[in-house]
């Protein structure tokens, strides 16, 4: 008995010594950890500032080149903001009325959203609130595949499939038309709307569903009266993101919408969007660095302002309608 105690005492003193040695080494390791922490911290700051730098330089280039555009004699701000005549390539009778391009963009975006928003929201409601788990597990990956198709594929799908179909339905459709491009952009945006709106619906706590059902509400009551209002901010964000995407979409409109800027609301007509014009310019239709070349930057800057204001609107809406559930 005594020997056991003595033995354990002896071993505990050696263990104490060992532990204090290890602990003092641990303190040295702490210094290394601190240095590591500082290195990581600096690296993170650098990455943060790098993204800031990129943003600032892109905006800087856009702004200076846009100012250069407005310094040309043949360009006036009143023409740019006050006209719908966009004819930069017409030699002597050039006109730079941005509305000719904005109207094309709005027409395509309008058609796309009229297709994608209702369909996306209804599909999201189905997936989130009604679909059995098996159906959901099947449909969600399909939607993700749809979102992963390169937009150029949508572009020639519009040109080769949608347009002939539209022409078969109705003879008045031009080979290049706003409707075909708009529908393709709509198909492109549909998975975005659907998946973001579904996330918003899913983030509504189950307790609210149970609450509505527990009061004798049907599934439809619960969805329309409780879940949809609670998810509103997320759904509106999804909508705005889809709008921003449609406005910025390039390949589809470059391929299917045509290259004739005009202020029209007829979806059968050939039009040109802001992005479509930029592709045309940057793609090398003009080789001199004249007014028409720099007009590209003015268009890009306008487009940037439009998407920026949409993003800011999105933030305001999100803050305004945000619900806290707890």
């Amino acid at each position: 008995m005594n020997r056991d105690v003595a033995e354990s005492k002896a071993s505990s003193t050696t263990l104490d010594a060992r532990a204090s040695e290890l602990l003092s080494r641990g303190r040295k390791d702490l210094a290394i950890t601190r240095i590591k922490e500082i290195v990581i911290y600096v690296a993170l700051i650098a990455c943060g500032f790098f993204s800031l730098l990129i943003t600032v330089s892109i905006i800087g280039v856009l702004l200076t080149e846009t100012l250069r555009f407005f310094r040309f004699d043949e360009v006036t701000l009143s023409n740019f903001l006050g006209s719908a005549e966009w004819t930069p390539l017409l030699g002597e009778t050039k006109s730079f009325g941005i509305w000719g391009l904005i109207s094309g963009t709005l027409l395509v975006t309008g058609i796309a959203m009229a297709f994608a928003l209702p369909l996306g929201l209804v599909t999201a409601i189905y997936l989130s609130e009604y679909a059995p788990r098996k159906v959901r597990d099947l449909l969600k990956p399909i939607l993700e595949v749809l979102a992963g198709i390169p937009t150029v594929v949508y572009g020639f799908f519009a040109l080769m499939t949608i347009t002939p179909f539209l022409q078969w339905l109705h003879g008045g459709f031009n080979v290049y038309n706003a409707m075909s491009a708009g529908l393709a952009v709509g198909i492109l945006c549909f998975p975005t709307v659907c998946s973001l709106a579904e996330d918003a619906l899913q983030s509504v706590p189950k307790s609210l569903r149970d609450g509505a059902l527990g009061l004798g509400g049907t599934r439809f009551d619960a969805t329309i009266k409780v879940i949809l209002p609670a998810a509103l901010s997320g759904i509106i964000s999804a909508f705005l993101l889809a709008v921003a995407r449609a406005i910025g979409e390039t390949m589809i409109v470059a391929l299917a919408a045509g290259s004739r800027p005009q202020a029209t609301i007829d979806p059968r007509d050939e039009i040109q969007t802001m992005t479509g014009f930029m592709v045309q310019m940057a793609g090398g239709d003009v080789s001199n660095f004249g007014t028409e070349y720099f007009s590209m930057y003015a268009v890009a800057f306008t487009l940037f302002l439009i998407t920026l204001s949409l993003t800011m609107l999105g933030n305001v809406v999100r803050r305004r309608y945000r619900e806290t559930y707890e």
Partner: peptide, 16 residues
């Protein structure tokens, strides 16, 4: 049934 048999949950769940 749920109109006739009401339920109150563990965590208060008022609607927003």
């Amino acid at each position: 049934l749920r109109r006739r048999v009401g339920i109150v949950f563990q965590k208060a769940n008022p609607f927003p």
